[in-house]
Measured scan of single mutants.
Amino acid sequence: MDPFVVLVLCLSCLLLLSIWRQSSGRGKLPPGPTPLPVIGNILQIDIKDVSKSLTNLSKIYGPVFTLYFGLERMVVLHGYEVVKEALIDLGEEFSGRGHFPLAERANRGFGIVFSNGKRWKEIRRFSLMTLRNFGMGKRSIEDRVQEEARCLVEELRKTKASPCDPTFILGCAPCNVICSIIFQKRFDYKDQQFLNLMEKLNENIRIVSTPWIQICNNFPTIIDYFPGTHNKLLKNLAFMESDILEKVKEHQESMDINNPRDFIDCFLIKMEKEKQNQQSEFTIENLVITAADLLGAGTETTSTTLRYALLLLLKHPEVTAKVQEEIERVIGRNRSPCMQDRGHMPYTDAVVHEVQRYIDLIPTSLPHAVTCDVKFRNYLIPKGTTILTSLTSVLHDNKEFPNPEMFDPRHFLDEGGNFKKSNYFMPFSAGKRICVGEGLARMELFLFLTFILQNFNLKSLIDPKDLDTTPVVNGFASVPPFYQLCFIPV
């Protein structure tokens, strides 16, 4: 058959498939802009700032609406009420993970971030239990974070109060905490193996944040037939998995079943207990991918939040002064901060919360999916439909947070200066898919920041009023603009 005829037939089939998918069930789905064949609503979305586009569309179609990214149908949730109703009140029905062709290629359905069903539930339950087990290797997770915080302070001392970009050092600290939990080992910041790991993690975040990856996920045929950065992403992930597998083999040879040292040991012990169960989800494949998931999810998000926190503290020296006064009063100079201190430091706690609220790190979270046909607000959402959640619409709700575009710790303080919780605080998402490392991340943010401010004054290279804190939105995360500062020993 003539190649031209084959091409026309293929394009015609794709067009018909697109029209059929977009028209099927439209009477039951939430409203939304009319999609174009094949490309859907992509032309109506700013790929570099999806969150802003969703906010604009919500003003037209309401808090629940339908979009098509290519052939992929998505239902968008915008605003606290619908997000709570879906992710919390109907948590089980909305607990699936959205379709990610690239991740599915890399992870093969294993791990904790992109798995679904029984596998996801069992691996998540085990990971939560293990991360909360403060007795691994007779050292609590808090001990590990405190140790890394001391190392971080010593690295900052080496800058000798000269101007520096904190990106690298602030990236090393949370990565080392995860390494300590998974591998029972922290690395020197100049260790070549550690630097290679950091390089792969950072490069992957840069790649994932590009519009090209959005295109690959919406048109998965590209993955096999086109060159691009997605190939580098898959190569980096394969490198990390190979490295983790080597460490798993080392653990198998040296493990003491009665004295687990780290996450890998705990997983291997669980595998041993379930070795007679042919349906067990505790396999080497799941261990390797879960460890890679924890490394990827637990490094860049925390380091970016820390980097943004220091920029905001530079911009608002009056806030920094209040935090340091609270540190001096509650902790002093002669001991290290600990998590028990947080309950006695409402202002510092409010500042950490406000940093996370203000920066809105992951504006749309990772997409969910419905696990069955769901009736939601008089609409029928078919099983498997991807759910896109606007966390921006919750964290920047102007009824809950007056002047949401302003950095103001009073958003989390009552009139008496006591810490005030808010149900709208969802930087880790909400419901059954809430970030498994939430507790660890909150511990790291509090301890790293208090250790830094206990030991250093922060000095800006320019007038604080002239510092730009506008986030650089890159399609996946909101990151701070480049800046330098000086760490002046107190």
Rank of each mutant, 00 (worst) to 15 (best):
N455T: 09
C266F: 11
H344T: 10
R139Q: 13
E253C: 12
A149H: 01
V145K: 01
E246W: 15
P427T: 05
V83A: 04
W120F: 04
H353D: 03
N202Q: 11
T55E: 14
V153H: 00
D265F: 01
V8A: 13
D293Q: 06
L43H: 15
R442N: 15
L268P: 00
A430G: 09
T210D: 14
T55Q: 13
N217M: 12
L485V: 14
G439L: 07
L361C: 10
F282D: 02
R73K: 13
Y68N: 13
R261V: 04
V248N: 01
M339R: 07
M129C: 10
V6M: 13
V288A: 13
A477R: 15
I45L: 14
F476Q: 07
S51Q: 10
L90I: 09
Q324N: 10
E274G: 08
L90V: 09
V177G: 01
S95K: 09
D188F: 06
S393V: 01
N378E: 12
V330I: 10
L54P: 01
L445D: 02
E400P: 04
G40W: 00
N259M: 08
E300P: 12
E93F: 13
S209M: 13
N231S: 10
A103R: 11
V8P: 07
D265H: 02
F65Q: 02
I284R: 09
L128S: 12
M406E: 14
N398H: 15
G70D: 00
P37H: 01
D89I: 09
S254Y: 07
L87C: 04
K420P: 01
T385S: 06
R329H: 11
Y189Q: 05
R357Y: 00
R132P: 07
Q279L: 14
Q278A: 11
L388C: 08
E285Y: 06
L16Y: 11
V83S: 03
T385G: 01
N423C: 15
Q278P: 15
E415R: 10
K235D: 14
N202M: 14
E85V: 05
S180H: 08
Q454V: 01
N176G: 04
E400R: 05
S390P: 06
N176A: 04
N259D: 12
R377M: 07
N398S: 14
N116I: 04
E274T: 09
F226I: 15
G437I: 03
I488R: 08
L449V: 10
I205H: 15
L156V: 07
F428K: 00
P260M: 06
I222W: 13
I215C: 09
V490R: 15
I205G: 12
Y308R: 04
D293I: 03
L306I: 10
V82W: 05
F69Q: 06
P427H: 02
Q146L: 13
I123D: 01
F226D: 03
L388A: 04
Q276N: 15
E92T: 08
M198V: 13
K247C: 11
G117L: 03
E104H: 10
G228Q: 05
S95F: 02
E438D: 10
K52I: 05
Q214V: 11
R329Q: 12
G384L: 01
A297K: 13
K138G: 13
S140G: 10
D191K: 05
L156N: 01
L234R: 11
E326V: 01
L366D: 00
T34W: 13
D262I: 00
D188A: 11
C10F: 13
L87M: 10
K84E: 07
E104N: 15
N398R: 13
S18N: 11
D256Q: 09
L7D: 00
S115R: 04
T283P: 00
L128R: 12
N107R: 08
N455K: 15
K28E: 12
K465Y: 11
H316S: 07
K185Y: 05
R410Q: 11
T386K: 15
V6A: 11
I215P: 04
A350K: 01
I141N: 10
Q340E: 15
V351R: 00
P363Y: 02
R124Y: 03
S254Q: 07
V5Q: 07
C266Q: 12
E415L: 09
L57E: 01
F126I: 05
T130Q: 15
I387N: 00
T364E: 06
N403S: 14
F282G: 01
P227L: 08
M443H: 12
K420S: 08
N277S: 11
D397G: 03
F110M: 12
K160C: 09
Q484T: 12
V83P: 02
F376P: 00
L54D: 01
E354S: 01
C338Q: 13
L395K: 03
K200E: 07
T469M: 12
P37I: 02
K232D: 08
R108M: 04
E328H: 12
N457T: 14
V8R: 08
T301H: 05
S23Q: 13
P260L: 05
S51H: 11
R357A: 01
I264W: 00
F219P: 04
G27E: 10
L87Q: 04
C216Y: 15
R119M: 08
N107F: 10
L453T: 04
L71I: 10
V5C: 13
F263E: 00
N378V: 02
G62Y: 00
G431Y: 04
Q356A: 06
F425Y: 09
Y379A: 04
T130D: 04
L11S: 11
S254E: 09
D2I: 08
E72N: 10
L361V: 10
K235I: 08
T55W: 05
A161S: 13
I42W: 12
N204G: 07
F487M: 05
K52V: 06
I215M: 07
V64C: 11
E285T: 10
R433K: 04
M198P: 00
C338M: 12
I223D: 04
T130S: 14
D224E: 14
L388R: 04
F407H: 00
C175Q: 06
F419C: 07
N378S: 12
L314I: 14
I387M: 03
I488A: 12
D188S: 11
L445W: 00
D46N: 15
R73W: 02
V323T: 06
R377N: 06
L197S: 01
A309H: 00
E155N: 09
L485E: 01
D360S: 10
S162R: 14
Q356G: 05
D2L: 13
P63E: 13
R307T: 11
L43V: 06
S242M: 11
L458R: 03
E400L: 04
L380A: 09
Q193K: 12
Y61I: 00
F65R: 01
F482I: 14
W20P: 05
G40N: 02
P211Q: 08
M406L: 13
T159H: 11
A297R: 09
Q324G: 08
N107M: 09
I215G: 05
H99N: 13
S24L: 12
L7K: 04
K273G: 11
V473N: 15
C179S: 09
F4C: 13
E147T: 14
L9Y: 10
I112G: 05
I141H: 11
L71T: 14
T301Y: 07
V76M: 02
E85S: 08
L391Y: 03
G25C: 09
S280F: 04
F482L: 12
E318Y: 10
S58H: 12
G296N: 15
R125H: 15
P480F: 03
M240N: 02
L237C: 08
Y189R: 05
E318V: 08
Q192L: 09
R119F: 04
T450A: 11
D188W: 05
I462S: 15
F282R: 01
E154Q: 13
K375E: 08
P346T: 06
D143A: 12
L54E: 02
L128E: 15
P3M: 15
I60G: 05
R105E: 03
R261S: 05
K249T: 10
Q278R: 13
F451S: 15
R105I: 06
P35W: 06
C266Y: 15
D360Q: 04
P409R: 00
R261M: 06
D414S: 09
G27Y: 11
K270M: 11
I112A: 06
T66K: 02
I284T: 10
P31A: 07
L11R: 01
